[in-house]
């Protein structure tokens, strides 16, 4: 595989409330800023991830294109998935296309406009699940219960994940700054308490990929070390919670194995509910010596459709700053960790 590096990463200061900015207005300063940072105004390829249901109207990605400066016309694609999968599509494209030595990847979402837990339920089996009205927090709670029953972990272990994430998030200027969770906080959907559910936020993230000579050129300009993608893979599990063992994540294990997820110092995991960190630690064989979500993770700010891309960006940023040598970024999609993407990065 061709060596490709993440050479820049930027994100919004994620907001729990609607600040009145349209999606394009949220994206424009971010994209303009990253263009200035890397000194490139036109990229070989552009790919984005978003979800129409967050604003309740089709074609949300069409107006987002206005923020890119797509003139003259650009080589561009879009996935109706988290921006992490847009990064994957760009990485695949760069493997073989001689014309593409840089790529712009972004993801964005404004969940403040609707009820996220109900919106997400529109993504469930339209015959057996969606008509029930089961929401995304309830689905996650079902998985949490299965995990606690199988592993013998206690609810306090979930709170501990939230506490550690929130403490880290308070040091991250882009995250929400949330209080220390109380172990007897009310349940949201038991066994998940309010702090076990990632707080939705409006936000966006941008990543720049480069290969060949462009990596050193951009690195010289930014003063950041390139974060080389040593492996990237994604896998799916069957959809329905009734046909799989919810207490484990075979697709995360497989994606991790294919991406070569060993020996990492830091893992940024797309943990939308506290128990998912525990399941993912098992699936990815992350020992106690691995620092998980030093950014605070989605439990400190969950900019839906960008949150997975943010994880990869945060994992890259630690290499950019010279803080770590080998890191892991993870993204998930679908109910109960159904789809998982793992990227392994190295300085």
């Amino acid at each position: 595989m061709k060596d490709i590096a993440i050479v820049a990463f930027a994100q919004t200061r994620h907001s729990a409330e609607d600040t009145g900015l349209a999606e394009t207005e949220m994206l424009l300063p971010l994209i303009s800023g990253v263009k200035e940072q890397v000194g490139i105004s036109r990229f070989g390829f552009t790919c984005s991830g978003s979800n129409d249901y967050l604003q309740g109207a089709p074609f949300s990605f069409v107006s987002a294109l206005d923020a890119v400066g797509a003139w003259p016309p650009i080589s561009e694609s879009h996935v109706e998935m988290d921006g992490a999968w847009a990064l994957y599509e760009a990485w695949v494209k760069m493997q073989y296309s001689d014309e593409v030595d840089t790529a712009l990847v972004y993801g964005f979402g404004k969940p403040s406009q609707g009820s996220l837990r109900e919106i997400m339920s529109r993504g469930y089996d339209p015959y057996y699940l969606a008509p029930l009205g089961v929401d995304s927090v309830s689905m996650a709670a079902l998985q949490a219960r299965a995990y606690l029953t199988r592993s013998g972990a206690k609810e306090g272990d979930l709170t501990a994940v939230a506490a550690r994430s929130r403490a880290a998030g308070r040091n991250n200027p882009y995250a929400l700054h949330l209080d220390e969770p109380s172990p007897d906080a009310p349940y949201d959907v038991a066994p998940l308490r309010a702090h076990d559910v990632a707080p939705e936020a409006d936000g966006a993230a941008v990543v720049v990929l480069a290969t060949g000579d462009r990596v050193a050129e951009i690195s010289a300009r930014t003063g950041l070390k390139p974060a080389w993608i040593r492996g990237i893979d994604h896998r799916a599990d069957p959809h329905s919670p009734g046909v799989r063992d919810l207490s484990v994540s075979p697709s995360a294990r497989l994606a991790g194995a294919k991406a070569g997820a060993t020996g990492v110092e830091v893992a940024e995991l797309h943990v939308q509910f506290s128990h998912e960190e525990l399941i993912l630690r098992e699936a990815l064989d992350l020992g106690d010596d691995v620092l998980v979500n030093p950014s605070g993770g989605p439990l400190s700010a969950n900019p839906v459709m960008a949150a997975g891309l943010v994880r990869i960006g945060e994992a890259a940023a630690r290499i950019h700053r010279g803080e770590n040598r080998r890191t892991l970024g993870h993204a998930t999609s679908g109910p109960c960790l159904q789809q998982n993407l793992v990227a392994v990065l190295e300085g």
């Binding site: 339920s121 029930l132 009205g133 089961v134 309830s138 009310p186 349940y187 949201d188 959907v189 038991a190």
Partner: peptide, 15 residues
């Protein structure tokens, strides 16, 4: 029952 999630505060869309 193999597993369950307890909804203490049902949403409007819940049954």
């Amino acid at each position: 029952v193999e597993s369950f999630a307890w909804v203490g505060e049902p949403l409007p869309s819940h049954p």
